[in-house]
Design a protein around this nucleic acid. Structure first.
Lengths: 219, 219
DNA sequence: CACAGGATAATTGTATCCAAAAATTGCTGC
DNA sequence: GCAGCAATTTTTGGATACAATTATCCTGTG
């Protein structure tokens, strides 16, 4: 028998997740105002949980909220994106180093399964969430909850642009190839290769995201 | 004549700052519940800004909020503290490397001034905020706003225990010595020494904090 | 016609009130 | 005396109502 899923969830957190996806999907352009009343009406709730969700997204760096002046989608400068990728490199290298020797048959199969599912996803949001799941499984054996949370946090302001860049099929293929190479390198225990592939993966992503980011901010 | 300081501040953010200090000062023990009504009455506001402040402190890792069950001061496990220090080492080493060659006469004087003021502070909270100011000035020339924000974030759950550890005068002196050494090493341009001192500084702090953290959780 | 000034509207921040969930108390039966 | 259960109390989450601030529009003046 199954346990009821125990809805230990608040309206605000559900809203936050929905808004996160909506922002990644490009529903609001950078700089555009998110009206509390409008969002509240749309989801059939009052403004209180909306405000809490917006505050949450602000702390994640997706929004900028000015006193009495509303919340708008943040428009990160190229330098900021660059800095985020540098930090990702630091944190993810560390995570992967620690996870590397702890992977086993089961975790590698899980990685392959996640990658299969990822490549099956046809919409952009599915790719993004699948990519997050893949990397979390890749870093999971490190058993570093705080670093993993940081990984998610560092991605959040970036994924919006990654989703945009998923248009060309070539990029998807390159992305998938790198993931497969990562699995293979972990499987054969080649530590140096693992690090090198991860760095290439992140550098390639950085280039694409920077292009998407600077190509959009034109108003 | 002076311009009014433009209170671009919300009740919730002021509350959050006050509560942060109160937690660092040890007003609530780890695991202890923070009652919304009580805090609201104490500061003469309604529960709405109190809830927003609590949510903010949760996102900083100072509180754990359970659905319908209240907010309590988080009690980080030793492993988590350890992980936070590892991350601090990664981020702060990177920041200091980048800031290193950008320091000049003026910034070094500023560092000395901050350190003087720090050592004058007689209360624990003054030390903590002074220490934060010192490190921010030390990393400031790197011009890495995101990393600096991350530095603050990684400290937040730790400072509570640092404040406790400030009891023995010996620790204060050692702390101050390491700061002076850092300034000196930056001044003479000894990159290797700078990194080594920073690492010692953080490792020493880690040991003290771990002791304070594990010595307290005894209920 | 550009622009300053002020009334008006729109929007956010906070207080008050109600509903839902959890903790507590007290009763009942054994 | 105590385990189990139900009513009560307490506390949190959310909705509605009001206050404070900002944005908009209109008008008059140079």
């Amino acid at each position: 028998m199954t346990i009821a899923p125990l809805a230990a969830t608040t309206t605000a957190s559900v809203l936050a997740q929905r808004l996160r996806e909506a922002i990644d999907a490009g529903r609001w352009q950078p700089g555009e105002l998110l009206r509390q009343e409008q969002i509240a009406a749309e989801y059939g709730v009052s403004r209180i949980p909306v405000r809490e969700a917006l505050a949450q997204l602000q702390s994640e760096g997706l929004l900028e909220i000015a006193h009495y002046r509303g919340a708008r989608v943040s428009r990160p400068q190229a330098a900021e994106i660059d800095e985020l990728f540098d930090l990702r490199l630091l944190v993810e290298s560390d995570l992967l180093t620690r996870a590397f020797s702890r992977h086993d048959q089961r975790s590698l199969r899980e990685l392959t399964r996640l990658q299969d599912r990822l490549e099956d996803a046809d919409d952009r949001l599915g790719w993004i969430s699948g990519d997050i799941a893949f990397h979390e499984a890749l870093y999971g054996p490190a058993e570093r909850p705080r670093s993993l949370a940081l990984f998610r946090q560092l991605r959040a302001p970036i994924d919006r642009f990654s989703a945009q860049a998923l248009g060309p099929r070539a990029r998807k293929q390159g992305w998938a190839d790198e993931h497969r190479q990562l699995i293979a390198a972990v499987a054969v225990g080649d530590a140096a290769a693992v690090q090198k592939i991860l760095e290439q993966h992140l550098q390639a992503t950085r280039a694409v995201v920077l292009a998407a980011c600077s190509g959009e901010g034109d108003d």
